Structures are given as structure tokens and as C-alpha cells.
Amino acid sequence: MIENLTPQQCWDVLQQNPAAVLVDVRTKMEHLFVGHPSGAVHIAWKEAPDWQLNSNFVAEVSHNIPDLTAPILLLCRSGQRSLDAAKALEAVGYRRLINIVDGFEGPLDTNKHRGNLGGWRFCGLPWQQS
């Protein structure tokens, strides 16, 4: 079962469980230039410019997080790619998967801008920019 938690709830899980791992599934460019949660492991689910699935995604996660029972929190821009990535990990036996609702940047506002209504950064959680 995949849980959907808010950024703040996910931060709480990370603080309470040292085995928990935050995986940023956005593209390399998003991770570097838009910013990313501090301490996140970056493993892209899809990569620009062709937006093909990363065929090594599951293998890369398995290499970084071999424990199938460790809580894995997945984050993308707004919550959809991370949910798809969680489903792929669930299919290979990972048991504690958490999709971060609203992702890093949150949903679009009325002006079609992200970052004003929700998401990791909006909630004031630790992040950095390259």
C-alpha cells in the first residue's frame, strides 16, 4: 500500500525514523536548479529532453536502499511522477512507500505558477539549491 502524506508529515517521518530515505525522482535539471530537499537521494524517474522512463530506476533504488522494509518517501514536482515511481517499487516488493502530496513545488495557482499553494518548499522545510 502506498501512503500519501503532506510534506510536513513526511518531514516528521524522516525525523522520527532514521531508516527512512527521501528519494527525489525529478530530473537532474529540476534537482539542481529548482532546488531539492536537504539530504534527498536523487534518482530520476524520467529524464529530459525525451521524458523516457529511467530503465535503471528500480535498480538504482535497490542499490541505494536494499532494505525492502525501510520507509521510502518519494518526491517530484507536484506528486504524480513520485506516485508512479512508488508503484514501480511496490511491484518489486518494497513495503513502506510514501508519496509526498504536492511534491516540491505544489500545484498551479490561478496564474499558473507553482510554489504559492503547497509543496515541500512552500511549507518551509529544509531545502537547498545548487
Rank of each mutant, 00 (worst) to 15 (best):
K46F: 04
C76R: 03
Q9H: 02
A88P: 01
H31P: 01
E3G: 01
S38F: 06
V58W: 05
P71T: 00
P107A: 15
S38H: 10
L73M: 06
T6N: 05
F57L: 14
E47N: 11
V41R: 10
G115S: 08
H63S: 13
N17L: 12
D84Y: 09
F57P: 12
L68Q: 13
A48W: 05
L14D: 05
I2E: 08
L32G: 12
W127E: 11
G39H: 10
Q16A: 15
C76A: 13
A88Q: 12
W51E: 02
L117R: 15
E3M: 07
G119Q: 03
N99I: 10
G119F: 07
N111H: 04
I100A: 08
G35V: 05
A44H: 14
N17H: 11
R81C: 05
Q8L: 12
V101E: 09
G118L: 02
S130Q: 11
G79C: 03
L53Q: 15
A86D: 00
R95K: 11
L53Y: 13
S82H: 07
K46Q: 14
A59D: 14
L89H: 13
A20D: 04
L108D: 05
A40K: 03
G93S: 09
M1P: 11
P66M: 01
L117V: 11
F104C: 09
C123F: 03
R121V: 11
F33M: 12
A19K: 13
Q129N: 06
E47S: 04
H36M: 04
K112T: 00
V34Q: 07
I43M: 07
G115Q: 14
I65N: 04
S62F: 06
V13K: 12
N64Q: 14
V25Y: 14
P7E: 12
K87F: 02
T6F: 03
L32P: 00
V25A: 10
R77T: 08
R77V: 01
A70F: 00
I98S: 07
V41K: 09
R121L: 10
A48C: 02
A48S: 03
T110E: 12
V25K: 09
L83R: 15
Q128V: 09
I72M: 01
L68N: 02
E60T: 04
V21A: 00
S130N: 14
L68Y: 14
L108M: 09
P107F: 12
D102Q: 15
F104H: 10
A88M: 04
W127N: 13
D84C: 12
G35R: 07
G35H: 02
L22S: 01
S62K: 15
G124N: 03
P66R: 00
C123M: 10
A85D: 04
D12S: 12
F122S: 06
H36A: 08
A86K: 00
E30A: 03
S62M: 13
G39D: 00
E90Y: 10
E105V: 05
L75G: 08
L125R: 09
T6R: 13
R95D: 00
G103Y: 03
I98P: 00
E90R: 01
A44E: 14
E60G: 05
L22A: 01
E47V: 03
R81A: 08
A40T: 07
P18I: 06
P37G: 05
W45K: 13
G124H: 10
H42F: 02
D102S: 14
E30Y: 09
R77W: 00
H63C: 02
F122N: 04
S38T: 15
P66D: 10
N99R: 00
R26M: 05
